[in-house]
Design a protein around this nucleic acid. Structure first.
Lengths: 360, 360
DNA sequence: AATAATTTGAAAAACGTTTCGCTGGGATCT
DNA sequence: AGATCCCAGCGAAACGTTTTTCAAATTATT
C-alpha cells in the first residue's frame, strides 16, 4: 500500500507539501498542488486513518451506546444517527449495553466500553441512559478526567434529559406523554386505570409513572399503587404484569403501559382472560413502533419521532465538534421532541386503520 | 493522560520493559514485572489503542456491513455478533448499507465504506450481501488488492453462501427453506399457490423462488410466473404485492411470501379483501421474526436462527484471526444453519399459540 | 542598490506505541 | 581461571501521518 512518502516521491515534492495539499492546511502553488493531486490519483492514495488519528487526536468515528439494538425502538434512533453522521463522513462504533442474559448490562461493562471509546479518540459519544442519571454522569465524568478529556469530548444523551449535568440532550418529555396517555383513557370513559412500568430504576420509566399519577390526581382520583405493576420493556414482562394487574384490581377498565412491546404481551394476556379491548378494558401504550398498528386490535399509543431523535442528536453533536466548544464553555443544548397521541382501536373502536401510512 | 513513558519512569524501568510486561511478549523478572504492574495500577494507565494499532496493524475492531438495521431480522444477527465479539474484546463498527430513501444503498457507497474499514485496520469484516454476489466479491477483492491486503483480511458472509468466491460463509439454505414452505402449503391442501419475492437481484430472494418452483414441479404442478409478484421485504410492498396477486390469480388458495415483514402487509391486504386466513387462503412467510407469532392470525413461517447466525459468523472469524491463515491458505469455512418449519394458524387452524415460548 | 519582509517548500520533530538489536554481567563450560 | 554463552533489560528505530521550524528564493521598501 502506498503511503504519503511514495506520493511525495512520485510528485517530486516533500512529504509536508503532500500533506498540505491534501488537508489544505497551507498555501501551495497551483503547479505543485496539481502534481500532487495527480500523483494521488494515479496511486490511489488514501491517508491511513489510524496514523492520522494518532497525530490529530480525532478519528471521524462516533461512539454510540445503545440500550437494546434488538428492540423496536432503538434501531430507528440509530438509523437517524447513521443518516447524518455517514453523510458527514463519520463512522459509528456501536456498543450495545444489553447483557446476554440479563436485560440490562452491568454499569461496569458499559463504563469500560465508554472508556475504551474515549481512548480510541472517538470524536464524540451518543448514549442512551439505562442507569440512574447521577451515577452514570459521575462515572462518565471520572473517566473523562482520567483521560485528560474532561472538557473536550462531546457527549449527547438521547431519550433522557441530562442537561442538569451539563450534557447536551435530545429527549421527549415522558411526564407529558404519560399525561396525554392517561388523560386519553379518562376521556374515553375509563375509571379504574392501571399502569405497567418500564425498568423502574430508569428515569424514563419513573417519569411515565409520574405523569400517570399526576393526571389521576388532577382529575380527582387517588392513585393506588396496587394498580401499578413493574415490567422491563419486554413483551413477556407485559404479559406477566397484565396478569398480575387483572388478579389484583377488580373492575380495571383501562391500562397505560410504558411501551408498546409490553403492550403486545398485555393484549395477549387480556385475550386469554377473555377481556374485550376496548369494550371491557382500554389499553394505551407508548412509543408507536412497528407492530403497534399491526396488532389486533391496533394499539393506541404515544408517538415518538425516533428517527428524528437520532437526527437531532447527530446534528447537535456535529455542531459541538465543528465549533470546538465544550458544553462547559457554551450553553448546554437541549432539544425536546414533541410526542403525539395516536388513537387506534385499543381505546376507540371507531378509529380508522392507519397502519400503512405510519412512518416509524 | 499518562503514557507508557510515564509508567516507565515511575516504575524505574525502560519503556520497552513496560511494553513487554503488558503484552507478555518477552520474559521479564518477577520483580520488575511487579513494579511495572503496580505503576500501571497507580496511574490508571491503558495503552492508547490508536498508537498500538498503528504499529501492530490491527485494531481489535470488526467491521460489520449490515443491510437493514431497522428490520426485524438483522438486529438479531448483530446481537449474536456482539455477544461473541465483545466477550473477546473486539468492538464493532457498523456500516448500514441502506440508503435514506432507496431501500438499498448504492454499491459505490457500500464499497467506499468497505475500503474505509480496511484502511482503518479492522481485524475482519462481516457482511451481508445485497448485490449480485459476483460483482460484490470482485469489488471487494479489488479493494483488498489495492490496499495490499488481498490475502490477509478475514471476511465472513452472513446469510448468503460466498464459499465459491473463497469467502467463509454462514448461511441457511433458502432453496431448502422455500421447499419446506411450499410443501407445507401443498400438504395443507392448497392447490393454487402464489409467491411474493424479496428484492429479486438478491441471491437469497432468487433461491426462495427457485425452491418454490422446484417444489411445484416435483408435485406435478407447472409453475406460473403470473402467480409471482415482486416485493422488497417491506410490509408495504407485501401489501401491494398481495393485492396484485389477488387481482391476477383467481382461485388463489395459498401464498408463500419471502419474509414475514411482507407477510404482515399481505395479511392486511387479505383482511381488507375479506379473505379468511387460512380457510380461504393459506399464508406462510419466512424468517420467523418478532411479530410473526403476534399478528392475527399467527403466521406459519420458516424459522431461521438469526442470533446463531451472528454467533457462528463471529466464531468463524475469530478462528481466522487467531490462526492467521487466510481463506486462500486454509479451506474455506462454510456453516449451514438448519431452518425449521413453524406451523401456526395462518396455515393450520388448530395450531397452538406459541408466542410466549419463542426465542428469536 | 542594498536591505528588509514575505512567500514557498523542505527537513525534522512529534504523536505513543512495539520491536529490533545491543550491552553487560552472571552462569556454564573447558 | 579464562573463555564462551545466555539472557534480562535498555536504547533506538520504526509505524504513517501532521505540524513546527528553518532556509532559500522572491518581492517589497528605502
Amino acid at each position: 500500500m502506498s503511503g504519503i512518502k511514495d506520493v511525495a516521491k512520485r510528485a517530486g515534492v516533500s512529504i509536508s507539501t503532500v500533506s498540505n495539499v491534501l488537508n489544505q492546511s497551507k498555501y501551495v502553488s497551483e503547479e505543485l498542488a496539481q502534481r500532487v493531486l495527480i500523483a494521488v490519483q494515479e496511486m490511489g492514495y488514501h491517508a491511513d486513518p489510524v496514523a492520522k488519528s494518532m497525530k490529530t487526536k480525532h478519528s471521524r468515528n462516533i461512539g454510540v451506546i445503545t440500550t437494546d439494538i434488538c428492540g423496536l425502538f432503538y434501531p430507528y434512533v440509530v438509523k437517524g444517527l447513521f443518516e447524518v453522521f455517514n453523510k458527514n463522513g463519520y463512522n459509528i462504533i456501536i456498543l450495545d449495553a444489553n447483557g446476554v442474559n440479563d436485560s440490562f448490562g452491568s454499569i461496569e461493562r458499559v463504563m469500560d466500553g465508554f472508556a475504551h471509546l474515549v481512548r480510541s479518540h472517538v470524536d464524540g459519544i451518543v448514549f442512551s441512559s439505562i442507569f440512574p442519571e447521577s451515577i452514570e454522569a459521575i462515572q462518565m465524568r471520572k473517566i473523562l478526567k482520567l483521560t485528560d478529556n474532561q472538557k473536550k469530548m462531546p457527549l449527547v444523551s438521547v431519550e433522557t434529559d441530562f442537561s442538569s449535568y451539563g450534557i447536551d440532550s435530545v429527549f421527549s418529555d415522558s411526564v407529558e406523554g404519560a399525561q396525554k396517555a392517561t388523560q386519553h383513557l379518562l376521556d374515553m370513559g375509563a375509571k379504574r386505570i392501571g399502569h405497567i412500568t418500564g425498568p423502574i430504576h430508569t428515569r424514563v420509566a419513573q417519569d411515565r409513572v409520574k405523569g400517570y399519577r399526576q393526571t389521576l390526581i388532577d382529575r380527582g382520583i387517588t392513585p393506588d399503587d396496587s394498580m401499578i405493576a413493574n415490567g422491563d420493556y419486554t413483551h413477556r414482562s407485559g404479559y406477566i404484569a397484565m396478569q398480575e394487574l387483572l388478579a389484583q384490581c377488580p373492575g380495571l377498565d383501562g391500562v397505560f403501559i410504558a411501551n408498546d412491546q409490553m403492550s403486545v404481551g398485555a393484549l395477549r394476556a387480556l385475550k386469554e382472560a377473555h377481556f374485550r379491548v376496548p369494550e371491557d378494558i382500554k389499553v394505551i401504550g407508548y412509543d408507536d413502533v412497528f407492530i403497534s398498528s399491526v396488532v389486533d386490535p391496533p394499539l393506541s399509543t404515544i408517538h415518538i419521532r425516533k428517527r428524528h431523535m437520532g437526527i437531532s442528536a447527530a446534528t447537535l453533536m456535529l455542531k459541538r465538534i465543528q465549533n470546538g466548544k465544550s458544553a462547559a464553555e457554551e450553553p448546554v443544548q437541549l432539544v425536546k421532541l414533541e410526542s403525539r397521541l395516536v388513537v387506534r382501536k385499543s381505546t376507540f373502536p371507531e378509529a380508522p386503520a392507519d397502519w400503512i401510512l405510519v412512518d416509524w
